[in-house]
């Protein structure tokens, strides 16, 4: 089990959170195929949250959304 990749996209403009997510997912994909991959993305707006979740779904990943105490979001993307 490898350490999850963490993408901190808080405060970034569109389309950077989705771009960074997509890149992280592509990088994870090129890793060992038998390992469960996890990518954690931090965002601070609902727009970025929705964009990152959609980017994950388009690539076939599932997303779990967790709202943080400061109002930002921790998005845990997993490859099914």
């Amino acid at each position: 089990m490898t350490e999850p990749t963490i993408v901190d996209a808080r405060g970034l403009s569109c389309p950077e959170p989705a771009m960074l997510t997509r890149q992280a997912l592509l990088n994870a994909k090129s890793g060992a195929a038998d390992e469960a991959s996890v990518v954690i993305v931090l965002v601070d707006s609902t727009t970025s949250r929705d964009n990152v979740v959609r980017t994950g779904k388009l690539a076939g990943w599932q997303a779990a959304i967790e709202q943080q105490a400061d109002g930002s979001y921790k998005l845990t993307l997993t490859r099914p």
Partner: peptide
């Protein structure tokens, strides 16, 4: 989040 520029951008960049 309607955006007339993001529309073309996301289609080309993210296939979205």
């Amino acid at each position: 989040r309607f955006c007339t520029v993001g529309a073309l951008r996301d289609l080309a960049l993210l296939r979205d």
